[in-house]
Amino acid sequence: MALQTQTGTSTDLNAQIFQRLHPRAYLERFIKEDIRPDGREATEWRDLSVHVGSISTANGSALVRLGDTTVICGVKAEIAEPDLERPKEGFLVPNIDLPALCGPRFKPGPPSEEAQVLSDRLASTITAAGVLPLSALCIHPERAVWVLYVDATCINYDGNVFDAALIAMVAALKNTTLPTATFNEETGRTMCSRKLRKPLPLECLPVSYTFGVFDGTTVLADPAAFEEPLLDTSISIVLDEGGALLSAGQLGIADKDTMSMCVSAAKERLETYGREIYAFLE
């Protein structure tokens, strides 16, 4: 998986066995040589590609690949009555699924704890960043609003699904068009027109940058599936397209400097690459 350069030789077999038996020592030896098992440097990111609108049954969709990590996201729009306390606000319901297909440690059945935590983090990030004002989903106050089900599915798990899923969800929302809907007060029904479709008024396009801290000192950008379980700390920095810090999260311990270092690394990455992510979706 990791050593693609020496396939088929006996040394490769030994390296693979060593990697499985002593993953920590395996990674340590790579880090000592300032390289990671997949050939990247510590601060290097994997290639990102975003492809939108390939699913015709969804109102909007996006396929995101971050290295080998693949997340596909579809938005389905339905109509519901609004919450009594918020009569002019629609609903945005983001969820991610990590099916058994995407990696050997995932089981079929209801969402695992990992998927639940991920869904919750994605939902709170999207809400906190104010990606879409919920008032824009109002059709008729107190009677009808849009519900946007933003469902992401991980097809291939190779680490850092949070970053990939956030980009997939935002790109899918950006790709979403809603038919114009009118609420008829006499009949109490909402009718949509197929001819007029309009895009969602997104106010913020967040991008997340995740870093892992290995061995208390080495900061690894965009951790892969093999590195993830060996990390002491995982730090996610969410920036908007202007570089403003929307949220920062740290799981595990780290020096007080590590966080600020990650923020500046994230900003650097945004400057060099981040702005292009959603730009081509215009």
């Binding site: 729009a77 339905e78 109509i79 519901a80 009555e81 609004p82 919450d83 609903f91 319901v93 983001p94 969820n95 209801p110 969402p111 639940q116 869904s119 919750d120 939902a123 519900v147 089900y149 038919p179 809907a181 029904r189 909402t190 009718m191 949509c192 027109s193 197929r194």
Partner: peptide
């Protein structure tokens, strides 16, 4: 175990009836 939406939501109905 999931992020929940409203209790009930329905598919959009189109005015051309198709």
């Amino acid at each position: 175990r999931r992020v929940n939406g409203p209790n009930e939501s329905l598919q959009p109905v189109y005015d051309d009836g198709i």
